[in-house]
Computed example of a mutant assay.
Amino acid sequence: MTSTVVVYFSGYGHTRRVAHTVAEGAQAQLVEVSENGEVSEAGWALLNAADGIIFGTPTYMGSSAWQFKRFSDATAKYWFSRGWQDKVFGGFTVSASFSGDKQVTLIGLQTLASQHGGIWVSLGLLPASTLAATRNDINNLGGSVGLIVQAPSDADASAIPAGDIKTALLYGERVAKIAARLKATS
């Protein structure tokens, strides 16, 4: 059986909702990065045993939240031993604006996965880019590197557009499916 873990930090609850949706799609376990940027020993054990890891962080000021960055830096102990070599990775980010430099954050997550010798999974969905497209459509923000989500800054997580939530579910499924496929061939 394939094991996937979603590790995320959420500042205001929006990223938490997306993490839970991605985890539902991937049938994954969740590891939350604390307000201090730490992960429990049990969380580290889940990450080390996982076949697939999906990173999640809000985009603040064009980058990952500092709490997620602290977690990222702490993964160096596994980098030295190549402990996460050949794992499947994916990532998502949330911000209030439609762009908000989310692509920069995703590239940072992709680089972290590459540093570990991992295999990155793109979103794999065509954008909803027609005149008739709405925020209820899948991949209505046109992501490709990973999942990007827009959450209004003046509303709670329930206001995340339905299209972004559907896209999150599909992305979780995609990462888990690829992890399972690669595990079956090894």
Score class of each variant (00 low, 15 high):
50 A>M: 02
50 A>F: 01
51 D>P: 05
52 G>A: 14
52 G>I: 06
53 I>T: 06
53 I>L: 13
55 F>Y: 15
56 G>T: 05
59 T>K: 03
59 T>L: 06
59 T>P: 06
59 T>H: 05
60 Y>N: 02
60 Y>P: 00
63 S>G: 10
63 S>H: 08
63 S>P: 01
65 A>Y: 02
67 Q>V: 02
68 F>H: 06
68 F>Y: 14
70 R>A: 07
70 R>W: 01
71 F>Y: 11
71 F>H: 12
73 D>H: 09
73 D>T: 03
76 A>V: 11
77 K>W: 04
77 K>D: 07
78 Y>T: 15
79 W>N: 15
79 W>F: 05
80 F>P: 12
80 F>I: 15
80 F>C: 13
81 S>L: 03
81 S>F: 02
82 R>M: 12
82 R>E: 14
84 W>T: 12
85 Q>C: 06
86 D>E: 11
86 D>T: 15
87 K>M: 00
87 K>N: 08
90 G>R: 03
91 G>D: 05
91 G>E: 03
91 G>Y: 14
91 G>I: 10
93 T>L: 12
93 T>S: 10
93 T>Q: 04
94 V>I: 09
94 V>L: 02
95 S>R: 01
95 S>N: 05
96 A>S: 11
97 S>I: 00
97 S>R: 00
98 F>A: 04
100 G>L: 01
100 G>A: 04
102 K>D: 04
102 K>L: 02
102 K>F: 07
103 Q>V: 12
105 T>V: 07
105 T>M: 09
106 L>A: 07
106 L>V: 07
106 L>H: 09
106 L>Y: 10
107 I>S: 07
109 L>K: 09
110 Q>W: 15
110 Q>M: 13
111 T>H: 14
111 T>L: 14
111 T>N: 13
112 L>G: 10
112 L>I: 10
113 A>R: 09
113 A>F: 15
113 A>N: 09
114 S>L: 07
114 S>F: 15
115 Q>F: 13
115 Q>L: 12
117 G>R: 10
117 G>S: 12
118 G>C: 08
119 I>T: 14
119 I>R: 12
